[in-house]
Design a protein around this nucleic acid. Sequence first.
DNA 1: TTGAAAGCGCTAACAG
DNA 2: CTGTTAGCGCTTTCAA
Lengths: 343, 343
Amino acid sequence: MAVTIKDIAREAGVSRGTVDRVLHNRTGVKPEVAIKVREIAERLGFFPNKAGKALAALKQPMTFGCLLPSIGNPFFDDLIDGLRMAERELSDFGVSVDIMQVKSFDTEVHVRTINALKEKNYTALCITSVDVPEVKQAIEATIAKGIPVVCVNTDIPDSGRLCYIGPDYYHGGKTAAGLLSMICKEKASLLILTGSFHIHGHNERIKGFLEGLEERKLPFEVIQTQESLDDNEHAYAITLEILEKNPQINCIYVVAAGVEGACRAVIALNKESSVKVVTFDDIPTTKMLVKQKIISFTLCQEPIQQGYRAIQKLFSYMMGNQRTPLSDSITNTIIKIRENIED
Amino acid sequence: MAVTIKDIAREAGVSRGTVDRVLHNRTGVKPEVAIKVREIAERLGFFPNKAGKALAALKQPMTFGCLLPSIGNPFFDDLIDGLRMAERELSDFGVSVDIMQVKSFDTEVHVRTINALKEKNYTALCITSVDVPEVKQAIEATIAKGIPVVCVNTDIPDSGRLCYIGPDYYHGGKTAAGLLSMICKEKASLLILTGSFHIHGHNERIKGFLEGLEERKLPFEVIQTQESLDDNEHAYAITLEILEKNPQINCIYVVAAGVEGACRAVIALNKESSVKVVTFDDIPTTKMLVKQKIISFTLCQEPIQQGYRAIQKLFSYMMGNQRTPLSDSITNTIIKIRENIED
DNA sequence: TTGAAAGCGCTAACAG
DNA sequence: CTGTTAGCGCTTTCAA
């Protein structure tokens, strides 16, 4: 049986209450007693029991607030599933999760929402936002109020956030390049479809991709790089136009949303077999297109894990002594082809 | 706050002890009272609180016994990491894990070990063994003694095991075929290296592979299928010989261990660029060979998850009412190439 | 500055 | 057949 707070109390000749006070760095303990208790705890290798702690914590249940730019973006469905899964698993420990969904990555909307969440006195926040100064400030203010924040899916460095949980976008791009150069024997003439030139993750995916192609020594030429603005109709229109004007294009690299639109253009031009499409994530339409072999492969980022781990991390942080910093959690780059797309 | 046993007791006008008895189907409760309590529990949507349960359970700690044919097989290192990870996470709930490692899949050794584990009165067992009648009987005897069993990595159906946690071998083979047909433009002349013709999983990987190639319409010819007996030296020798005799071979499909040996032969014959090697799992030597591009890709089966989930499943089964059967947990087929092999 | 006690939800042992 | 009680480990409150 592990060592308990009682053991420490007995050993130190004090009461359990005093030990608890010391262990939580609360005031009102004679310094010499505190030192002695700490020494004994250390020596005995004390580690607080989760079950006992959780049970006592039930009296002060915790609620985590989330901000997700998920409206109209099916990618987040899986991430939300992960959040809910963690909530379910931790509900017996008094945890609940509130999700605030917004549409788009508009800075003003995000700042307003973060401030609203701050006022609601959540135990902690879990957010997916944009790396701009205004948002950073809103996060700093939240943390200053004593509400810890984690970033999920998109990092906002230097904001004071506890940690980042999400993919390594650069690495995803590089993996795309690796696989493409395995399936592509001729020179690659590329159409790159990004979501927005202002989103860091999208840029990283392009950078990793191009550097990866060079590393693999696949000859290539970027014919054009365009923004889809995460909109299928727009993606369809520009893909159609560019493919028509540049018949030499044999590969489309879709960095963000707009996958279905781009593929629709490929199909409309009867280029399913001459143009390879490489994408990210596996929202339902993407899955279908992989199964139909319109998309050669798609790279996923474990969205369920992202949601799940974010909540688990916050929980363990709140349950811990709140002084141990959390480490980042980078999700894997998962290659999906027709055969394993339904995994 | 969720509904507790106390709420039910009050509502039913009985004591907490009685409610507990009913909920655990223990004897000594007047049938009509039992019915009433059950009805109220149902109506209130009662679900026992994990933390409370765990705390009480500390008085009767549980120990799970494991059997793994892991000696000399680095694949199991990751699986063991998963077991230990779960043990660590659940240690506060009184869980500990004993691992019994054996060498090889020898039936007699396995039966003897299972019987030994049975006598040690573990709370439950978690085993990787062979699907043969003798082992099946040993498992049945263990279960008859009241010790539940789960199968990890390799299923033993109809043995009464609670559930299977591991890969879908057939599906792994099919995925290998899918990817191979994407990177291979000419007819595939195959050397298939299996571990043993008597291991079901290995056969499934071959079956899935061949059927997958047909589905993808990649022309192919199996030049030879040989047993490596999971031994690198043996794999080296036969690969060397077969490659020399059949220079048309352009693809080696390694279903089990012996990867390093097979690759050594490819290197010895300077065939790194003319022969594609496709393997399973990512033990250290395999990782290295993927990085060196000797192996085109390797298919992994989430070994850490296998160990982790096995223990978690046993725990939740023992903590639950022990009447809800466990569902199988099929791990994903993870494609790894040079770029994501270190994920 | 400290100790004692109550209680989180559940289980088990003991009385009746 | 059923109620009472004690206790798992920890936190918090009240009292001293």
